[in-house]
Design a protein around this nucleic acid. Structure first.
Lengths: 166, 166
DNA sequence: TTGTAATTTCAAAAATAATTGAAAGATAAT
DNA sequence: ATTATCTTTCAATTATTTTTGAAATTACAA
């Protein structure tokens, strides 16, 4: 496979995949593009490569920064801002785990704690509480897993998993 | 909190949350509703409770069955079909892990293997391959984690995590 | 069979999400 | 202080996804 072809396929695949995960295509493609770019890129660069508007680029680059997945870089003498992706993929994974935990797990834990508190007088309410308790334990597991990723040393965690689960 | 209120909040919260994950609201709400219902429900029942159309109910109930999260149940003498959710939450988690693995991880592994195969002659191509290799290892980790969930005994895995990560 | 109840399908409509592009807002050089 | 360059914002547009509802299909009973 040619490099150009591979590059396009990667950006395209990442974009498609992202939508399955509730992430918009432009953001995923921007990240993909910066990940594989050895050089920092300007807004103009990414606009041209992905054929997207200035506004789209600006907003999604900001979102990627909020996720801690890319950084702004200033070049001496240059007026423009350059962007670079975090290249350490395990750091990227940790960062994503951290953000998803913060944005998705934490709020759910709170809601479930509230909902567990109803008094289980009727059979319906009893069933309800059983489900809430079950969900709490699953969410707790997800939380622990994300924490494991967040705190893990680069290869340690994976090697553990590889050892135990075949 | 009243039971009715708690129930509404749960269904509502689950529906909202789902959209963040790329799952449509009706499907998530249907699942939530069936999860907390002690009795099997008919299509009419769910249509009324969630205020959704027949077509919507039909399609999303089918999708939930494809995910292995609910079952059809026939009652002797009754013409209608009844639906029940899988109530064992850890089984639900295993089922979701299994499906996400099949639908999301497996295809990505294949694409990455293809993309890793380009020859790294230019600096760009070299960077590209480095990224692909990094992604492969992260995806491999995700795969292992999902497998762990899929194969795990109900409480064993969680207790392990609780022990190790505080 | 024929009729009836229930379910599924799918084109059209509605709702939601993403993207554009031009104006407003910065920032730095002159 | 003015101009030129670059960035951000946001209302309007476009694209995508979800939902509807009525027709077609299926399943069963008389």
């Amino acid at each position: 496979m040619e490099f150009r072809e591979a590059k396009d396929k990667f950006i395209q695949t990442w974009g498609t995949l992202a939508t399955q995960w509730g992430i918009n295509r432009s953001m995923a493609q921007l990240h993909a593009l910066l990940l594989i770019s050895p050089e920092p890129m300007t807004t103009e660069d990414v606009m041209e490569q992905l054929q997207i508007s200035r506004g789209n680029a600006s907003m999604n680059l900001r979102d990627l920064m909020d996720w801690g997945l890319i950084y702004k870089q200033l070049k001496a003498g240059e007026r423009k801002e350059f962007y670079v992706a975090e290249k350490d993929i395990w750091k990227v994974a940790r960062q994503v785990a951290k953000e998803r935990r913060r944005r998705e797990i934490t709020p759910v834990v709170e809601v479930l704690n509230d909902l567990k508190a109803i008094d289980a007088s009727t059979p319906e309410a009893q069933e309800f509480r059983r489900v809430m308790e079950g969900l709490s334990s699953v969410v707790g597991f997800a939380d622990n897993t994300l924490n494991a990723v967040i705190k893990a040393e680069e290869n340690w965690l994976m090697s553990q998993f590889l050892k135990v689960f075949r």
